[in-house]
Amino acid sequence: MNEQRRQILQLLAEGRITADEADSLIDALERDQPKAPPGAAPRSKSRPRYLRVVVNSLDEFDDGPSRINVRVPLQLLRAGVRLTTLIPPQALAKVNTELGRVGVPIDLNELKPQHVEDLIDQLGDVDVDIDDPSATVRVYCE
């Protein structure tokens, strides 16, 4: 309970204002409270640290079910992305040429580390859940 609300209730308890007046004062107080911006994340939500990939499949052969459980720190993804800045421009030009030749017209020179880092920052909201009768796949951040 904040201080202003407490003062209003105190005035009501002392009989200096009526219940209706206290109600209208509290309403006015709530209207004046700054609201959180719509895009803002709740403060209590902690920032994800790991990317998890969990695959469970019922094997069609005699070996039994398969299970894959991978946990990768997001920091490791960031470090890996930064390593790409070391690729020399002439190598990037060759890669671009080869990509264009096989029908993937992606210019890697346009792929800035900042963009990829922004992408990784937004990975926290990713939750891929595939539920198949023979297998389940889940990719999420925790």
């Binding site: 070996d63 398969s66 299970r67 459980n69």
Partner: peptide, 11 residues
């Protein structure tokens, strides 16, 4: 690297 974990269980 700390925190990385790979677990594969296949039959």
């Amino acid at each position: 690297l700390p925190g990385t974990r790979f677990e594969i269980d296949d039959g």
